[in-house]
Design a protein around this nucleic acid. Structure first.
Length: 665
DNA sequence: GTTAACGAAGGCATTAATGA
DNA sequence: TCATTAATGCCTTCGTTAAC
């Protein structure tokens, strides 16, 4: 592409994008738009010197909405790790103070609603406009909810501020008044009422109709500045105060604390005020005020660093176990579930609670007919706490599968009971559900019920059969199993579409024991195709990170068992991708490097993006600095953060993005 | 035009197994 | 021993389509 052609392409894209965002008109299909955008970005990679800072591809918020309305978050929207004991709060606070004696804490109400992020961008009159409202989704990719901004009273559509970019996150919730009004009206109209304010808020934030949403009434408390000018990225509390004072934006109520004792006092104060608030809260969040310190306290990947949430003790009630159901999972594991006389707990009716396994049953002494104390763990999941009146006997999981009548055996050294019949219908059924689920192949529209229907009608008995369904299209339409023409074709098309899924997804969906998407990723880093994995020995597989003897054995078993291996080879024949073609592969220039990234980035949307890029080229990206780390990427190379100190301790290079890019990319 | 059925989405938790 | 992952589970509301 010549420079002029690139410029023309950028201009065309800008026209389409403006029409879409500002006038709600689609001049071309989303698919075509995405293609052009990809082309444009590819060129920009080859010729970074052509890129203007205001080019459409550089504008945060414009290139993020895919054709199904999904938005990749600029900063991931992770959840906060919950703790249920005050001792744990004290422990965490002291750990932070030990590392940073001057740390300050913000203790905040944890609003019970649904999380959302707002992006603001500089406009031409030196102010800022709201360009995007996005829901949380899976934490990395959410849904574009910009059209609902007018329905949320507290969202400002413009700010009189000349920052280049501002991203704030908060909780969308429903006030009790609005919730009660909604339910009164539903009752008047003889319609179903909503169970609680959180669910109604979450449901309302899901509506496609902004007017209906506005009628119901939503509010929002801001609880974080995700990204913005340097001044706002230092003290969390100061940033919240600024937003509140300057714009009257409602921010979450917080207490500024310096010691563990002060934190506990604040938690108690919030707990006591709970009953008098006009909205629901489900805990108290403790955050480190100094944003720079947050990354020094590592946590699991799904949690934000530098935050914990204290959960107040939940409501508890008594009921009677009226039965125990046995569920057979896709691996054959038998899970007992208690059926109870319905009780009302935290705004919902509770009838079921999992019993996990025989050990759990034995420990509590559960049997049909006993009385139990039930609470909602985390205020969501019903859980039996104790048996208050025993029957004198304890339930025993039978040795016959409740579905196929096959033999049920207790696994040695585990708490699991498994149905040993490999053609057990329940297992096949669950296997297909797993294969089709969102986290695996993501076959849209193919859910539990439809799969069951297809199995019962004899069309499928395993996931490979799904790719044969199209041969029976007319028959299916005639019988109306999936609905009529339109529905049938939709499902068939969605199945076909999954043939384009990357091999990693396929490998993770096959149902190999202990191999999910994450393990599949590790495997595909070391092997060039699933075929190669199928041919590998236990020893070879064990060379891969995260693969031990058991998992390696499971993989070998899967590809050596004639039945399961056949499933895989049939999928391959149907045209599913089992390797990444050479021309789509990235050069493995970073093999052997262990890289840690910290702090905020300038050239990449977020750390995840840089991480993906490094991983594609063979590097290992970790969350902490150790003696095995090759390099630490941090734009603030002089900071005194824990990671910088560790890097210095081990004598490792600390590079900013630019230096790193110039040296290695 | 209304209703029923089903799946998706959005919120989550727990346990056991695994790997380091 | 610790951190992570896989597998399983629970509840509510909305959207879509087909059927009545």
């Amino acid at each position: 592409m010549t420079k002029q052609e690139y410029k023309d392409l950028v201009e065309t894209l800008t026209v389409y994008s403006d029409a879409y965002y500002k006038e709600n008109k689609s001049l071309i299909s989303d698919f075509e738009f995405d293609l052009m955008m990809m082309e444009c970005k590819k060129t920009e990679k080859e010729h970074p010197e052509w890129v203007a800072s205001d080019a459409i591809t550089q504008i945060v918020g414009s290139d993020l909405v895919s054709n199904d309305g999904n938005v990749t978050h600029h900063v991931p929207m992770l959840s906060i790790e919950d703790v249920f004991l005050k001792e744990d709060v004290v422990c965490w606070v002291e750990k932070v103070l030990h590392e940073h004696p001057d740390a300050i804490f913000s203790v905040e109400e944890k609003i019970d609603g649904t999380s959302a992020t707002l992006r603001y961008q500089k406009n031409s009159d030196s102010g800022m406009d709201l360009v995007m409202v996005e829901s949380r989704g899976d934490g990395y990719v959410g849904v574009n909810k910009t059209y609902l901004a007018p329905a949320v009273e507290d969202i400002r559509t413009s700010l009189n501020e000349a920052f280049d970019y501002l991203e704030i996150r908060g909780e969308v919730y429903m006030k009790h008044d609005n919730f009660n009004r909604y339910n009164e009206q539903m009752e008047e109209e003889g319609k179903k009422t909503a169970a609680n304010a959180r669910n109604l808020a979450s449901g309302t934030f899901n509506l496609n109709d902004p007017e209906e949403a506005e009628k119901r009434g939503l509010n929002m408390f801001i609880f974080n500045v995700q990204d913005g000018p340097k001044d706002m990225m230092q003290s969390h509390i100061k940033a919240l105060e600024y937003l509140n004072k300057k714009y009257g934006i409602p921010v979450v109520k917080y207490y500024k604390c310096h010691t563990a004792q002060e934190v506990l006092t604040a938690i108690d104060a919030i707990g006591e005020s709970r009953g008098n608030l006009s909205y629901d809260i489900d805990g108290a969040v403790v955050k480190i005020d100094q944003i720079a310190y947050r990354d020094d306290f590592s946590s699991a990947a799904k949690y934000s660093t530098g935050h914990i949430a204290y959960k107040y003790p939940p409501e508890e009630k008594e009921t009677v176990v009226t039965g125990i159901e046995l569920q057979v999972g896709r691996t054959g594991r038998i899970t007992p579930v208690a059926v109870m006389q319905p009780i009302h707990l935290c705004g919902t009716t509770v009838t079921h609670a999992t019993l996990h396994n025989q050990d759990f049953i034995n420990e509590l002494g559960i049997d049909v007919g006993c009385s139990v104390a039930v609470f909602k763990s985390g205020e969501i999941i019903p859980k039996i706490k104790t048996v208050s009146k025993s029957t004198g006997t304890i339930y025993q999981i039978p040795d016959v599968c409740p579905v196929c009548g096959g033999h049920v055996k207790k696994e040695i050294d585990t708490a699991d009971y498994r149905c040993t019949n490999p053609s057990c219908k329940a297992q096949l059924f669950r296997n297909i559900i797993h294969f089709a689920s969102r986290d695996c192949m993501n076959i849209k529209g193919l859910g539990k019920e439809l799969i069951e229907t297809l199995i019962n009608a004899g069309y499928v008995s395993n996931y490979t059969d799904l790719y044969r369904l199209k041969e029976f299209r007319q028959e299916l339409v005639n019988s109306g199993i999936i609905g009529r023409d339109k529905n049938t074709d939709n499902i068939l098309q969605n199945i076909e579409a999954t043939k384009e899924n990357p091999p990693t997804t396929l490998l993770g969906s096959l149902g190999i024991l202990n191999v999910g998407i994450s393990t599949a990723k590790s495997l595909m880093k070391s092997f060039s195709s699933i075929d190669e994995i199928a041919a590998a020995s236990v020893e070879e597989l064990m060379q891969v990170d995260d693969i031990g003897e058991t998992t390696a054995g499971n993989i070998v078993d899967f590809f050596h068992d004639s039945q399961t291996a056949k499933l895989y080879f049939e999928l391959k024949e149907h045209g599913l991708k089992t390797y990444v073609p050479d021309n789509e592969k990235k050069e493995q220039t970073l093999t052997g490097m262990t890289i840690c990234i910290t702090g905020s980035l300038n050239h990449y949307k977020n750390r995840k993006e840089l991480q993906n890029l490094l991983e594609e080229r063979g590097a290992k990206v970790t969350g902490s600095v150790s003696s095995k780390t090759t390099v630490l990427i941090n734009n603030d190379i002089t900071s005194n953060s824990g990671k910088n100190r560790d890097a210095k301790k081990y004598g490792l290079p600390i590079m900013d993005e630019e230096t790193f890019t110039n040296t290695y990319l």
